[in-house]
Amino acid sequence: MSDETEIDGYKYIGQGYNVVPVGSHKGVALNVTQPNQMIALMGNAQKIKDTIVITPGGTTTFVAPLLYKKPGGIITFGGTPESHLGIVGRNFRVPIIMTLKLEGIESIPDGTELMMVCEGKLGRVYAKLPA
């Protein structure tokens, strides 16, 4: 597993449980906490593919519809791969990192360019942050 602190201009920001080994994937962060945000995203198929959805819980309730549309990735701050979300995500082979522990930042702002490295048991997240 890669443990670099910087890859191609993306800086390491934290790690969490990796659900499925799908390698490295890039996308743009979007925090989703309410159903209406999810509904708005579902209406834009291209945006879904480019988006890494960041959601506080580790349940499927909010993010399940998106899994069918193959989002760029999903990051949660709770839950484990041994869960319904983990099981469904593994089937769709969507990059998912659960229970992300951020290091050096408190949150991931919308629009942040992210790279998820989904290899092994722990997945790592990298971001292009303003200097």
Partner: peptide, 9 residues
């Protein structure tokens, strides 16, 4: 159940 499904996958 979820443990068994994860293991099966």
């Amino acid at each position: 159940f979820v443990g068994a499904v994860t293991e099966w996958q």
